[in-house]
Design a binder for these strands. Sequence first.
DNA 1: AAACAGGAACCAC
DNA 2: GTGGTTCCTGTT
Length: 289
Amino acid sequence: MNIEIIELEDGILLQNLQDFELRHTFDCGQCFRFNEDADGSFIGIADGRIVRMIKQGMDLRIKGAKRTDADFWLDFLDLNRDYSRIKAQLSDDPILKEAIRHGLGIRILNQQPFETLISFIISANKQIKQIKRCVEAIAEKFGEPVSFEGKTYYSFPDAMQLSKAGEAELRTCGCGYRAGYIAATAADLAAGRASLDEIMAQELPAAAKALQQLSGVGPKVADCILLFAMKKHGAFPVDVWVKRVLEEFYFVEYSNLKELRAYGMNQFGENAGIAQQYLFYYAREMKLR
DNA sequence: AAACAGGAACCAC
DNA sequence: GTGGTTCCTGTT
């Protein structure tokens, strides 16, 4: 879509963005470290880079970003992909067409695999607000400080840094019974017994299987990592909201999670994960029960 | 007949 | 949501 990149005194400006809204993108359950301020801008940190994003019409101002970081942010926000085409394809489905109308500015982020892995292990049996609090606590305790706008923020630790944390210390971050899973998984990665780079290089089915070898990672969490950090858009995470939409609008009768996952992947194909995000956002807007 | 992989059900965390 | 255990079944 021909994005222009302009260097500003305090950041960069990305011009002429189609199919992109901050609120849609950061409020659809994929990301836990970007938060909206009173003025509608979003402040957050990814890969140790702290920024404030301000949407101005079709442009996005990223305060705090360097010119050399432009490619990183374009990729992080998945702005190089043509969502108009994807949305047009998905809109053959009337229910999806309606869902897309509600979350038309959603982008599937390309987040850091390790941070995404740990964040979604934490997500089991937790609300988004609680997950955010826990992730923040881990960053403060084990990450590196970064100052911005006169305040201090913290990067999310890498596997090596987090492997130095004990289960007990993780519990003080609010991880609860997930602390043991996180400690074990961080240790495996730090010791090289598993590699997220290698997993990411595999095809979706094999990558999903490999992720599930890690402690605390089952089918749902694996799908989230594949979709939100590994560009595997065919993954279809089934959580309670997606379950509700499928039952409410697709008349899927009582079925287990595995069947719902297969239904989604079959129904929506290679972009099932993107469809999942529109449906998730829609279900929450409709306050489905 | 005994051993075993793999899946469903159940419940603690 | 995942992990561990139990129980059950198809298979060798």
